[in-house]
């Protein structure tokens, strides 16, 4: 872990009409680090994530990404084409619903191949090999690589989505409730897979979830959000074992009860 942040948000505020989704957010992610963002539904977690990924433009504040060459890119001041280039080469975004992040009418292989093609790969053989490799990495049987993603179960689709986002070997991965609609055993498997891949590939991750067990397992640092603001952030085990803010205590207490 180097000390310069990979991605840094300063005083970010996001509004949708009269609603303020995130308020005055400061947050940083470093290389090889997993940052968890937890909080109740509607706390602004996903909006913040989309803002960090450059998808949503904040009303005020800056998000700065530092590339492998040490150059800083102020995301929301970039031209659309430059932002798209970064988004396809340097980071990945795993959506809560697989159909938001996949093309269900295409095969699993094509879904994994697409980001590579968009990065300029023009050799079919290379693409085919990479797609097979990454499907294996997420523990999918390559025998099914030419089947349409639509025919896959939710957990399998989510793994295809993960493979699709790792194939370009990004430096930064955004995960928006990656285990959302999955049953518990599949969730555990997917989380463990994410943990192992992230550790092996040294990719930085911003993980939005309301699953505290997931962040305890995955995240180095944790941000707790409530009503658009950060109420607490720190070491994951510290925030979970010794929550300071009333809302964090409520969150942790609620988790333990169920």
């Amino acid at each position: 872990m180097s000390d310069a942040p990979l991605l840094e948000a300063e005083a970010v505020t996001c509004r949708f009409g009269r609603v303020t989704a995130c308020r005055d957010i400061d947050v940083a992610v470093h290389a090889g680090e997993i940052l968890g963002i937890v909080g109740e539904s509607g706390a602004g977690k996903s909006t913040l994530l989309r803002c960090l990924a450059g998808v949503v433009r904040p009303a005020s504040g800056t998000v700065t990404y530092t590339d492998a060459g040490g150059r800083e890119h102020p995301l929301h001041a970039l031209e659309d084409s430059a932002l798209r280039r970064l988004a396809r080469t340097d980071w990945g975004f795993v959506h809560q619903h697989p159909h938001d992040g996949l093309r269900p009418h295409l095969s699993a292989g094509a879904n994994v191949a697409e980001p590579l093609l968009r990065c300029g790969e023009t050799r079919y053989g290379r693409i085919r090999t990479a797609a097979r490799h990454w499907l294996e990495q997420v523990e999918l049987d390559p025998v099914r690589m030419d089947d349409r993603v639509r025919t896959f179960s939710g957990g399998m689709q989510q793994r295809v989505q993960l493979a699709r986002n790792l194939v370009t070997e990004p430096r930064l991965l955004f995960l928006d409730e990656p285990t959302g609609g999955l049953d518990v055993s599949v969730q555990a498997r997917l989380l463990d897979l994410i943990r192992q891949l992230v550790a092996r590939l040294q990719v930085a991750v911003v993980l939005v979830t309301h699953d505290l067990a997931a962040v305890r397992l995955l995240a180095h640092r944790l941000v707790v959000m409530q009503q658009g603001g950060i109420v607490e952030q720190g070491l994951t085990d510290q925030v979970l074992d010794d929550p300071q803010h009333a809302y964090s205590q409520l969150l942790v207490a609620s988790e333990l009860r169920c």
Partner: peptide, 12 residues
């Protein structure tokens, strides 16, 4: 000083 260190320093 661990009481004041940044979380990333604590991890280190």
């Amino acid at each position: 000083d661990l009481a004041r260190a940044h979380p990333r320093q604590v991890l280190a």
